[in-house]
């Protein structure tokens, strides 16, 4: 089973990389781009678990390690059974 995990900075937390990229896009002429926020994309493979078990495990590992709930939000999706 394969899952995709997305970890992003929470609203209200400064994300300086995204801001720098937005400035660069402005320099390229893309003045329509008003916001860029960079996060993390993590691929997780699981073995020998039901879909429900996998969801529980993913929720747990996001809280314990993959994301820092003080500054980051996370979401995940199971992309391969």
């Amino acid at each position: 089973m394969k899952a995709h995990v997305y970890v992003t900075m929470r609203r209200g937390v400064l994300e300086p990389q995204g801001r720098a990229v937005q400035k660069s896009l402005e320099n390229l002429g893309y003045t329509q781009v008003k916001g860029v926020r960079i996060g993390k994309f993590i691929e997780v493979e699981l073995d020998g678990v039901s879909r429900q078990e996998a969801e529980n495990i993913l929720e747990e590992i996001c809280r314990k390690l993959l994301a820092n709930p003080v500054i980051e939000d996370f979401r995940f999706e199971i992309v391969e059974e």
Partner: peptide, 16 residues
């Protein structure tokens, strides 16, 4: 901080 012994978070410097 990550271990929960101290409060808050430390993120990238604003100057990168």
């Amino acid at each position: 901080i990550e271990g929960g012994l101290l409060p808050g978070a430390l993120i990238a410097n604003r100057s990168l």
